[in-house]
Structure formats: C-alpha cells, structure tokens
Design a protein around this nucleic acid. Structure first.
Lengths: 200, 200
DNA sequence: CGTGTTTTAGATCGAACGATATAAAACACA
DNA sequence: TGTGTTTTATATCGTTCGATCTAAAACACG
C-alpha cells in the first residue's frame, strides 16, 4: 500500500559489493555507492539506513556466495582430500584472474574494518572459523578413510591450510604470482601425506 | 641558516606510524596526525609534503625496524632452523600481546593501500619478498647442514612459512588465539622434518 | 477518485576533509 | 645588528563527506 521500489535490491547490493571490494570501506563514498548502484542518495538511505548498515548487508551477501558456499557444495560430494585441494586451487585461479587485485572482501574487511567494528569482526571471525572448521573436518575424514596421513592432528593441518588461504588472499592484493600460490599449496598438501597411501 | 626544527622528526614519524598502524590510511586524518605528532598542520606539510608522502616515510621507517631487521640480526647468528622458528614465535607473541589488534603495518597496507598505489605496492612487495627470501635461504642452509629434511624444495617450504606469517598477521587483527597461531606454526615446522635427524 | 504510505529526485545541511595563505618568530650569516 | 631563510601558529581555503529535508511521484486500498 505504497509506492514500490524502482530498483532491484539484490543488484544494488551487488554493485555495493563491487565498490567496497575494490576500494575498501573508508575510500568508498556514499556518492560513489549511489551512482554505481543506480539509485539516488535518498533511496540508498531509505532502503539501507546508513553507510555502515549497507556495508554489513554487502558483506553478508558476499559471504553467502563466497568460499563458504563453495565448501557447502563440495563437502560430502567429493573425497575430502580433493575437496581441500579444489577449494584452494579455485582461490588460486580466481586470484590469478583478478587483475584489479580485489582479493577477498571478507579478508580485506578483516584488516580494514574488523579491528574497529565488533559486529563486523564477529562476522569475519565466523566466516574464517567456518573455513577452518571445514578444513578440520575434511582432514579428519581423510584420516578416517586412509587417504590422509594420521601423523598430524587435523586441527593443526587445518590451521596451516587456513594460513595458506589467507596468504594467497593477501598476496593477491599485492603481487599475484602462480608459483608463489602453488608453492604455498604444494607444501601444505605435503602435510596430508602421499596421494595414494602405498600399502606396505 | 634559518629557523631550526622545534620537533624531533624521528619521534614525529613514530607517532605517525602509530596512527596509520592502528586506524589505517584512509581513516587517519591529517588533523589526527598533527595532534599525535605534536606539531601543527603547517609544520606537517612543510616537513613532509602531504599525507601520502608522510605515509610513505612512516611505512619505510616501520619497515626498517620490523621483521626485516629482526631477520638481519638472527641470520648467520643462530642455526637456520632456530632462526625460522624464532622469527615466527616472536610474531606470535607480539600478536598475542597486541590487544589493540594493530597487526603489522606492512601487511595492513598490503590490503588497504598497495592495490591502488604502485609505489606502496612496490615497497610492500619488496618487504614480503625479503621475508620469503630469508625463509628460503634458511631452509636451504638447514638442508645443507642436515638439520632440515631435503625432501621438499626450499622455495616451497619458504612459501608456506610466508603464508603462516601472513595468516598470523591477518588473524591478529580479527581474533588473536594462541592455539590457532601455534597450530599454523607447528604444521609448517613439520615440513622441516624431525628436530634431531635421527641417524638410522 | 480520494486517502494514506512509501519511494523518488533534487537541493542542501553542518562537519570534516586535505591543503594553503599570511605573517610573526627564530635562527645563520654578514 | 640587519638580512635572508626556514619554521611556526592561526585562520582559513574550496571540496567532499555522511546524512537529511522537502516535495513531487507512484502505488494500494477504500
């Protein structure tokens, strides 16, 4: 019983994601956002509240469609070792295609926004915790079915895999290089043991 | 043959480092900087040029006294394996004491500033490249004297160690936890092989 | 076809931004 | 003790910031 929205909220959020992703939170102005979202400043404030609330919406939307979503699709569908490797290889390829050096919005926000905003910090910590937990479950599953060596605790292997993921995301914003990324991954995969567990 | 400086440039730069380190580049205003540096805006611009030039000076000064300096002091003085472990353990302890979640200025700048400013990107890439090169030299030296297993190429081990360093620095800004940091390190050190190479 | 409600567009708010102009103050050198 | 030069302090400069006001436009409902 009122005038309807003239813009697609999802598309507008995608445009906001693009802005925050590329330039960061502080360097993105509300005028930048409104222009890229194809709406006026008044509509932006009417629909989303303020800049910070819009950022939270953008961060949440990005999170739902990022690595966490890929993990949900892979886990249980492919063997654990392959799931781990696929997640990290996809991030490597994405980072090498990322000529604008956007990196990952969650991890960019981890450094720029999270330390000063408790709710963003919680959201970022939650996402990274889920990734670490996935790695841990996958390693444990691989150890259970014999495809991953049980000499290391799955928690520690998962932490190294998380470090590799974070390392790739950081270097993607500075100097994306295939050999660097694949070297990080190769050594981490060594922690899983030989690919085919040679029986005797 | 003129009026002398009334402020200590080094101390002023330290104050500027503190500002950029804690709040980041964009969120730090020139007025914040001048106040913390104990000088007026006019003196700041007269002495340093503009905000970006001051940031570069601060980043350079920080870099000279950070991990790179510690590496220079350790390398050649202690066994390679111990040098690697000391560097990373120091970063872990520093991160756990870092209640303000400042992390590392170089890596914070890697995400916020480097993608958009070629000269900062070059400076950051140079610093991280030096750290990776140190890890590589240390692993190679350890392999040469038999204290590090030669089954992995030193380049790849160095890349994983760099990823662990970056991972610690990222998580230090979000959620510093000893078990996470030490788990990253433990698994990376596994790549070096057993501490005492058991003969037969 | 009014009435009520929300969204739109455009103008603009006060505050803060990076940076500068001006002139007095503090030195080196003659 | 003048002269030249740099640094200092104060008061801004014009711009942009995040956010809001006003009123017209667009719908649902009666």
């Amino acid at each position: 019983m009122a005038r309807p929205r003239e813009f697609d909220e999802a598309a507008a959020l995608d445009a906001a994601i693009e802005c925050f992703w590329t330039r960061g939170y502080e360097a993105t102005s509300v005028r930048d956002l409104a222009e890229r979202m194809g709406i006026t400043g008044a509509s932006l404030y009417n629909a989303f509240g303020d800049k910070h609330a819009l950022f939270r919406r953008a961060l949440d939307r990005y999170s739902e469609r990022g690595t966490t979503a890929r993990i949900a699709r892979l886990e249980g569908q492919v063997p654990p070792r392959q799931a781990i490797e696929t997640v990290l290889r996809d991030i490597i390829e994405e980072s090498l295609r990322d000529t604008a050096r956007k990196g990952c919005l969650v991890i960019n926000s981890a450094l720029e926004v999270a330390p000063h905003e408790p709710d963003c910090r919680q959201a970022v910590a939650d996402r990274l915790g889920r990734i670490e937990a996935f790695f841990c479950r996958a390693v444990a599953a691989g150890q259970a079915d014999g495809t991953i060596t049980p000499v290391l605790p799955p928690e520690d292997v998962a932490r190294n895999l998380l470090a590799v993921l974070l390392g790739i995301r950081v270097m993607a914003r500075v100097q994306p290089e295939r050999e660097l990324f694949e070297g990080m991954l190769r050594s981490a995969l060594t922690l899983l043991g030989p690919v085919t567990p040679a029986a005797g």
